[in-house]
């Protein structure tokens, strides 16, 4: 049976979530492996949520925020970027491939980009295979 990854996507309300909505309005197909959770800002994404997602068996975690300089809340996306960068280091040391965590900037007008990056990410996780944490569960 082919491996179907489980991916959680934290999408900021103003850009990435709206971009995902636009992908819908434009009927752009992408894999259903990714399930969205709407947060107000990518800066709301506590690294704890990311770790928790992996612990619960997620194969990948996606965070979508506004482009640099465009954050609805001035600087939340920069905070997200710093946290994700540090989080990747932690994951690596823990023995989880940091590529399983991805931060992307998707504006409200980038429906196509949303569909594209999500498709790519799902593809990448498929290549990586199931998360080692999921295996242990």
């Amino acid at each position: 049976m082919s491996f179907e990854p489980k991916i959680v996507a934290f999408l900021c309300n103003w850009c990435a979530y709206a971009g995902a909505d636009l992908a819908g309005t434009s009927r752009l197909q992408y894999p259903a492996n990714i399930v969205p959770i709407r947060v107000m800002c990518s800066g709301r994404v506590d690294p704890e949520f990311i770790l928790e997602a992996f612990r619960k068996g997620a194969d990948g975690v996606f965070i979508g925020g506004c482009h640099p300089g465009d954050c609805h809340y001035v600087s939340g996306n920069y905070k997200a970027r710093k946290r994700v960068e540090m989080m990747k280091k932690l994951l690596k040391e823990m023995g989880i491939n940091p590529r399983r965590l991805r931060l992307e900037w998707v504006s409200a007008t980038e429906g196509q980009k949303f569909a594209d990056v999500v498709s790519q990410f799902v593809e990448e996780i498929k290549e990586l295979g199931p998360s080692p944490w999921r295996e242990k569960k």
């Binding site: 995902a20 909505d21 636009l22 992908a23 819908g24 309005t25 009927r27 752009l28 197909q29 992408y30 894999p31 259903a32 399930v35 969205p36 709407r38 569909a115």
Partner: peptide, 22 residues
């Protein structure tokens, strides 16, 4: 949101599964 981020972008069984999760 099971329209923009589900039924409009997915197909078949997996769309229903995802909708349930959402």
């Amino acid at each position: 949101n099971i329209r923009e981020q589900c039924s409009w972008v997915h197909d078949g069984e997996e769309a229903t599964e995802k909708a349930i999760k959402i």
